[in-house]
Design a protein around this nucleic acid. Structure first.
Length: 576
DNA sequence: GCCGTTTTCGGCCCGACTGTTTTCAGTCG
């Protein structure tokens, strides 16, 4: 069993214990252990072999014993026993909003509900409303939850590229309202996750009731989920949940911190607070002895009070940032201002919309020192891929354009297909004549892991290849990453000194934060490129930088933060 | 079930909202 399988079984155990009404702290202990095992950098089998299971945070004697049992037999006795005792599909049923362990227990004992079908039947027959603590409204909520479960699960998470414009639209609406001040998008949007489950806003107000009312009655609100005095919750146009929380100005920093999350990060902070005799909530710190509340106006104050360096929102995932902040060892994250150029852009020579000159002038206007024009190679006929002859003409046009600039350079490149037989789309002597070769897989995504990995590895090993574009091929919300042995890819890139791309196009964001961080840890350089097919696409660079920040990248980890001469030296490009 | 910068026992993250309640339990994030 690997880490995620062990973790999944512990989670399931927690669910079953919860159904049985066990001590909530025991349940939390299982969840904590499951989470920590899932987040381990190392294979849990190796830790077991060293006899160090109990060194994993949240794993004590009892759970270590169960993990050991699992690693040896694939399961553990206490789990099997409960699994037989409980006929109810706890996992599926607890996924239904409104259904928690207590309600599920009630439904099972009185109505014999064991499955989603049973639940639907009981609700439709109006049998739920007669149960203690239940009523007609509760029954209707459950029915609605069941109905929306299907729809929601299809679009449960939204790519950040789609969520951000919606967040901006709502922000503008709220900003225009006289009752609402200091509107900030918090939550996973502020952490710049590549996809978000909902959009969270916080704000201050001189008239809270009116502020919440205005929020829940915006033009594009489809449904009001909740409406209190400090919090409103809605479904917005496009089936996206949006929450707004109102707070006093003196607690603004505490609230922003709380609502930015992540949940795991906040739990860590509250833990640290408790060890200092403080209780942390969205209102501030409460001294456990005196009961006095100290609200924080700024987030900086929250972290300072805990004895921590400030932690940028993008890092708040409980992936080591708390430890880094404790030891004053925070990375100096890359920012958009560090970017000196874009090494993957297209022109109208293939499927881009602008001329090479237009792409160059637009980039220069952004303050860049260079771009690499990487139009498609000949196999991508559908995208106007360049024949050998056209590629050579393309290079000479770039040379002509370069004569017009003394403070800017267009590099001649190509986005070269890695073909099904793992060879590249041009011969070596053609590739040799280019400043930069980016290789990418654009076909045969459905091949097996071994074949795809082999294609990728041999491309990386090719001496002419400089950068691998969008290495996993995912399209957010459309297509999963293809089967790839990422470890093999990373090792080959490291051994051959090749650069991997963080493709900033909002549908791609590929490599993602996790893989990019693994690359950094293996000392592999990255490039953040927009893959622009139009001058307006240069703005996507910020999405790529967001991914890089979530991957803990610093300017030195990214090649296109280099000045032109250093970049040329690194990539072996002749100076003209 | 886990854990210890006052603790090997007695804590364990915290608060908003809702519905069915007259003081709270359950769910959610």
């Amino acid at each position: 069993m690997d880490n995620s399988e062990v973790s999944a079984r512990l989670y399931k155990m927690a669910e079953m214990l919860e159904f049985q009404g066990e001590n909530p702290f025991k349940i939390r202990a299982y969840i904590k252990a499951a989470r920590n095992i899932k987040n381990l950098d190392e294979d849990v089998n190796k830790i077991f072999e060293r006899g160090e299971l109990e060194d994993i945070p949240g794993v004590g004697k009892a759970i270590a014993g169960k993990v050991e049992e699992m690693l040896k037999t694939g399961t553990f006795e206490a789990y099997e026993r409960l699994n037989i005792q409980i006929p109810v599909d706890v996992g599926k049923l607890m996924e239904v909003p409104e259904i928690g362990p207590r309600t599920l227990q009630l439904l099972y004992q009185h109505l014999g509900v064991e499955s989603l079908e049973d639940l639907k039947e009981a609700a439709e027959a109006h049998r739920i409303r007669r149960l203690p603590r239940m009523g007609a409204k509760q029954e209707e909520r459950i029915l609605n939850a069941l109905k929306s479960l299907d729809e929601r699960s299809k679009l449960n998470r939204i790519p950040i590229g789609r969520a951000l414009p919606i967040a901006e639209e709502i922000q503008n609406t709220l900003d225009a309202n006289p009752h609402i001040q200091n509107v900030v998008a918090a939550g996973s949007i502020r952490r710049r996750k590549d996809n978000v489950g909902d959009i969270d806003f916080i704000a201050t107000s001189t008239n809270q009731k009116n502020a919440i009312y205005a929020f829940t009655h915006m033009e594009k609100v489809q449904e009001i989920l909740g409406e209190g005095t400090t919090k409103g919750s809605i479904i917005y146009d496009g089936n996206i949940q949006v929450d707004l929380r109102i707070v006093n100005e003196e607690s603004f920093g505490s609230l922003l911190q709380h609502f930015t999350g992540s949940k795991e990060h906040n739990i860590r902070l509250r833990d640290i607070a408790l060890s200092r005799g403080l209780r942390l909530s969205e209102y501030g710190f409460t001294d456990q002895n005196t009961g006095n509340l100290h609200p924080c106006r700024t987030e900086e104050e929250v972290y300072r009070t805990l004895g921590l360096d400030f932690i940028p929102p993008e890092l708040r995932e409980d992936r080591g940032e708390v430890e880094a902040a404790l030891s004053v060892n925070m990375p100096h994250l890359i920012t958009i201002d560090d970017i000196k150029g874009d090494l993957h852009v297209h022109s109208n020579w293939s499927d881009g919309k602008n001329t090479i000159l237009e792409m160059a002038e637009a980039a220069r206007g952004l303050g860049y020192s260079y771009i690499a024009i990487c139009d498609h190679s000949k196999s991508r006929a559908i995208a106007g891929g360049l024949s050998e002859k056209r590629l050579i003409e393309h290079v000479s046009e770039i040379e002509t354009i370069n004569e017009e600039f003394d403070d800017f350079r267009v590099l001649s490149g190509v986005e070269c297909d890695i073909k099904a037989n793992a060879s590249l789309d041009y011969s070596s002597d053609i590739l040799e004549g280019l400043d930069l070769v980016i290789a990418a897989i654009h076909s045969g995504f459905n091949e097996d892991r071994k074949t795809l990995t082999k294609r990728m590895v041999s491309a990386i090993e090719n001496e002419h290849v400089d950068i691998i574009a969008h290495p996993t091929g995912r399209l957010l919300g459309e297509r999963d990453a293809y089967e790839l042995d990422m470890n093999a890819v990373l090792q080959t890139a490291r051994d051959n000194n090749k650069v991997l791309e963080i493709n900033a196009f909002p549908e791609r964001l590929d490599l993602n934060d996790i893989n990019a961080r693994s690359a950094k840890e293996m000392c592999i350089s990255l490039a953040i490129n927009t893959d622009a097919h139009h001058t307006s696409h240069y703005k996507y660079m910020s999405f790529g930088v967001d991914v890089a920040r979530r991957a803990w990248l610093e300017p030195d980890d990214v090649v296109n933060t280099l000045e032109l001469d250093k970049l040329c030296k690194l990539l072996g490009i002749e100076k003209h």
